[in-house]
Design a protein around this nucleic acid. Structure first.
Lengths: 326, 326
DNA sequence: CTGAAAGCGCTAACAA
DNA sequence: TTGTTAGCGCTTTCAG
């Protein structure tokens, strides 16, 4: 591996000149520039990022802390974050927490200014933590730290979903995904209640089903408990698409027809939701906008003293599909 | 951020002693050790990985080069690679190529010994490339370079899938996913033909449908073309689950019943495949084994002169579900 | 067992 | 404009 010094020797100039050429700095005598460029090509020189960053006091990495890549929402988001980070010459380091307190703590603790320049965190359990680098939170999980956030208006999104169900003439609308610790769940539940209220429907606590996790199996279990009721719902709002897919699966196994007997709305608009049978109506956050907003915010913050808290709200839409066909 | 020197000053010893303690080296006088540990705790010292790696000549990262995180197979695999890498104190850097030649070239070119210690690559287009770090290929894409691989026996897996369909009494079995450039596709097609041959069925080229990409939309398009035939198939083997999901969706839209009218087998066993309606029978590679084998192989290779090519074959199974119910 | 000091490859004062 | 040089924080001979 050729170093700057090797190139300098070959070109017959000093390292500084080579460094200037490599970094596109100032004015270099054309003749020297040519010779340096030749030497660069001849040696196949490539800068040692570690050394450069050590010197510059930056690392060239940002961390993306998320529950699990096997959750489609996070996988899609991660792909977009990687793409957005590339614009700022950042590489992305993904840490999985599996949504547990221990997992989040250890992932967060591993992060320091010598490992990453900044971090994007999507917490589900931790409530207090410190990060020595600029960070931005995704989602609405409550934490005791003042910190910037990027996300959609969860209350509005949830109420949009539920009002859509009501507009279809549904009257017994269940909610799957309540969770005592998750801020996001609280907001979606709030939106659910707000929609019922606006439309003059009564809130029935027995129609709100908690979910410890937001995986497909949890959605199926919740749906089964709803279908066991003497008076089951005619619609269900699931707090994410995975729960919705599980719910639809459970319904199918019990010969409950979607959407005729039961309308279903999800949240996240996973790519798979357009291809399920029936396809799934879902709240579609603009994931690209989230990824870009988060990365850009960090890029603005890095190297700046003044912390300051910013809240960026990104757009969403309701994707209407077969699971709520009239 | 406290440095080794700060800790040494506080403890009243030299950096060497602190370094020894931090790295668990040799014997340190108990008294010194205690004082160093106190100083370590008091300053909250955390080693600067960049500096350490610069000195050690390693980076602490491995690259995972894959088409796209939004493809469930790669997302699941990435999660497992990250977990496996953690065992060796490696952080994982994910590069997306989108399966294009340009994307693969630029991702591969960005990789150097100062960025990563090794690389796991899942190529789809590139045929010749050089990497200055130990690397292992996932999948069966043909390249002109001698390089280690980890994966399942694609021919056997494909023929297992097709023989399963034949054992159900199906006789007109289509294949979706042929691709002129992809080695993996060639092997799966070979397995398909082998199964037909073993079972004494005739090979009908009109039942083999190519797919430029392996996304859900491609599967739907391919299925539509098959269903347009005067004599459509009674079963289809899709080269991945995404194609299968698309194919099932297209079938449903045309009121073709799965599995009664059409049995479907996929490949990859994505998590979503257990929850589709009907659920999807699929070849299930042991993704955890693939991830572990790849990471372990690299760990053995790194720092070793002699390259040597290893081929690791990981196990797979056939997950039988509703899409091929008798 | 521990200290001093060199140096990994690079950037940025400071001189020239 | 370009060269010289001092470190970034760490590990590692080499003495002691």
């Amino acid at each position: 591996m050729a170093t700057l010094k090797d190139v300098a020797r070959l070109a017959g100039v000093s390292v500084k000149t080579v460094s200037n050429v490599v970094n596109g700095y100032s004015f270099v005598k054309p003749d020297n520039r040519r010779r340096v460029e030749e030497a660069l090509a001849a040696t196949g020189y490539r800068p040692n990022l570690g050394a450069r960053n050590l010197r510059r006091g930056r690392t060239g990495f940002i961390a993306l802390v998320l529950p699990e890549l096997s959750i489609p929402y996070f996988a899609e988001l991660a792909g977009l974050v990687i793409a957005a980070a590339q614009e700022h010459e950042w590489n992305v380091l993904i840490e999985q927490t599996f949504g547990t307190l221990a997992g989040e703590r250890s992932a967060l603790e591993a992060l320091g200014p010598h490992l990453v320049d900044a971090a994007i965190v999507s917490p589900e359990a931790v409530s207090d933590f410190q990060l020595e680098v600029p960070a931005v939170l995704l989602g609405e999980h409550e934490v005791d730290v003042p910190i910037s956030r990027v996300g959609i208006d969860n209350v509005l999104a949830a109420s949009t979903a539920v009002r859509h169900l009501i507009s279809l003439g549904r009257r017994r609308i269940a909610a799957i995904g309540a969770h005592p610790q998750r801020g996001t769940a609280a907001l979606r539940l709030e939106g659910y209640r707000a929609a019922l209220e606006v439309e003059g429907l009564e809130f029935d606590p027995s129609l709100v089903v908690p979910a410890l996790n937001y995986h497909r199996a949890d959605g199926a279990a919740a749906m089964n408990s709803l279908l066991d009721m003497k008076n089951p719902p005619d619609a269900v709002f699931c707090f994410n698409d995975l729960l919705a897919v599980g719910a639809m699966r459970a319904a199918a196994e019990r010969f409950v027809r979607v959407p005729q007997d039961l309308a279903v709305v999800g949240f996240d608009n996973n790519e798979e939701s357009a291809y399920s049978s029936p396809s799934l109506t879902s709240i579609a956050p603009d994931k690209g906008a989230i990824a870009r907003a988060a990365v850009d915010l960090l890029h603005r913050r890095v190297g700046v003293e003044e912390a300051g808290v910013e809240n960026v709200q990104t757009p969403f839409s309701l994707q209407v599909r077969e699971s709520t066909a009239p």
